[in-house]
Design a protein around this nucleic acid. Structure first.
Lengths: 94, 94
DNA sequence: CACCTATTTAGAAATCTATCTAAATAGTAT
DNA sequence: ATACTATTTAGATAGATTTCTAAATAGGTG
C-alpha cells in the first residue's frame, strides 16, 4: 500500500525468495510453499505481506490461488535508490 | 556486511531519511541527530545499523564523527531489483 | 449432501527492533 | 589534571515480526 510497506516487505529473505520464484511465472500458494521448510500458514502470512506491499497480485482459479509479480512497485523502489545516488532523473519521494 | 543487512537497514524510515540527508554531503552524528525528534543514542543506534550494512562510512575528525553515503551498496541493491524485473544485465544474487 | 483439497485466519509463543535513560569513552581546551 | 563536548555502549522495556498449531473458509467431486 505504501512505500514504507514495500521496503519492509523486501527486508525478509523468505519474501525475497518468493519474489525470485515468481520471476519464472505465476505460482499457486501451495507450489510456493513447497519450496520452503515451513508451514503453509507461515508462507501464507508472507504472501499477505507481499500483497499488502503491492509486490504481488493474486488470481483465484478453481480452488487455487495463483500469485504473480507486480513490477510497478519494483520500479518505484529503483527510482528511490536512483535518486539517492544522485540521478535526478525523477523527483524526490518520502 | 551482507546483502541481507542492507535490505533490513533500508526498511526503516528513520534510516532512509538519514541516507537522504547524507545526499547533501557528510554530516556529523550530532548534526544528523538534530534533524530528528529522538535522543542522540537512538540516532547513534540507527547509524550503527547503516554502518553494518555498509550504506555509510565514518571519518573521525577532532572529537566529531562524520558520516557519508556509500554508493557501492546502493548499486548492488539496484542490481537485485533490476534482475527481478528481468533485466538479465548481470547475474543472480542470493 | 458429505468429503477432500487448497488456502487463510486466529491465537499464542519466541525472537527481534526501536527507543529511552544512564553511564562510559574519547578528544579538546582551559 | 579538570572540565566540557560529541558520541557510543549498556541495560531495560514496549511494541513489532516470524513462526507454529488448530480451526475456519471456500471451491470441487463422488
Amino acid at each position: 500500500m505504501a512505500f514504507e510497506d514495500t521496503f519492509k516487505a523486501l527486508s525478509d529473505p523468505v519474501r525475497r525468495r518468493i519474489l525470485t520464484l515468481l520471476k519464472g511465472g505465476m505460482m499457486s500458494a501451495g507450489d510456493i510453499a513447497s519450496n520452503f521448510d515451513m508451514t503453509g500458514a507461515t508462507v501464507s502470512y508472507h504472501l499477505s505481506v507481499l500483497k499488502k506491499a503491492d509486490l504481488i497480485y493474486e488470481k483465484k482459479e478453481k480452488n487455487f490461488i495463483y500469485y504473480g509479480l507486480n513490477m510497478t512497485v519494483v520500479e518505484e523502489m529503483m527510482l528511490w535508490l536512483s535518486d539517492l545516488k544522485g540521478d535526478s532523473t525523477d523527483d524526490k519521494q518520502e
